[in-house]
Simulated assay, not measured.
Amino acid sequence: MTRVPFETVYEVVTEAFVRAGMRPEDARTCARTHAESSCDGVYSHGLNRVARFVDYLKKGWVDPDARPTIVKELGVIEIYDGHQGPGILNAYFAADRAIAIAAEQGVGIVTLRNTTHWMRGGTYGWYAADKGYAAISWTNTESCMPSWGGKNTRLGNNPFVMAVPRKKGNIVLDMAMSQYSYGKLQVTRLKGAQLPYPGGFDKDGNLTAEPGPIEQSMRILPMGYWKGSGFAILLDTLAAVLSEGLPTSQIDQVGRGSCTGCSQVFIVFDPRQLGGEEFTDKVADSVADYVNSSTPDERSKEVLYPGQSTLRIRAEHRANGVVVDDGVWAEVLALAGRTAA
Results as ranks from 00 to 15, higher is better:
Thr2Phe: 13
Val4Ile: 14
Glu7Phe: 14
Val9His: 10
Tyr10Asn: 14
Arg19Phe: 08
Asp26His: 15
Thr29Leu: 15
Glu36Ile: 08
Cys39His: 08
Asp40Lys: 11
Ser44Lys: 03
Ala51Val: 06
Ala51Met: 08
Lys58Ile: 14
Arg67Glu: 08
Leu74Ala: 12
Gly75Arg: 11
Ile79Leu: 14
Tyr80Ala: 01
Asn90Arg: 01
Phe93Val: 02
Arg97Tyr: 00
Ala98Arg: 00
Ala100Ile: 04
Ala103Met: 05
Gln105Ser: 13
Val107Leu: 00
Gly108Thr: 00
Gly108Phe: 00
Gly108His: 00
Tyr127Ala: 04
Ala128Val: 06
Tyr133Leu: 03
Ala135Ser: 08
Ala135Lys: 00
Thr139Gln: 07
Thr141Ala: 09
Glu142Gly: 15
Met145Arg: 14
Asn152Leu: 11
Arg154Trp: 15
Arg154Asn: 15
Arg154Ala: 11
Leu155Val: 10
Met162Trp: 07
Ala163Arg: 01
Gly169Tyr: 08
Leu173Pro: 03
Met175Pro: 04
Met177Tyr: 06
Gln179Ile: 15
Tyr180Ser: 10
Lys184Thr: 15
Gln186Cys: 14
Val187Asp: 09
Thr188Ser: 10
Tyr197Val: 09
Gly200Gln: 06
Lys203Gly: 11
Asp204Glu: 14
Pro213Leu: 05
Gln216Gly: 10
Gln216Thr: 13
Ser217Leu: 09
Leu221Lys: 05
Trp226Arg: 15
Lys227Thr: 05
Ala232Asn: 02
Ile233Val: 10
Leu234Lys: 07
Asp236Leu: 01
Leu238Lys: 02
Ala240Tyr: 03
Ala240His: 01
Ser243Pro: 01
Ser243Ile: 00
Glu244Ala: 04
Pro247Val: 04
Gln250Lys: 13
Gln250Trp: 05
Gln253Lys: 12
Gly257Ser: 04
Cys259Thr: 07
Cys259Met: 12
Gly261Thr: 02
Phe266Met: 00
Gly276Asp: 02
Phe279Trp: 11
Ala284Glu: 01
Asp285Leu: 03
Val291Glu: 02
Thr295Leu: 10
Glu298Leu: 12
Lys301Pro: 04
Val303Met: 04
Pro306Lys: 07
Arg312Lys: 14
Val328Leu: 12
Ala334Arg: 13
Ala336Met: 05
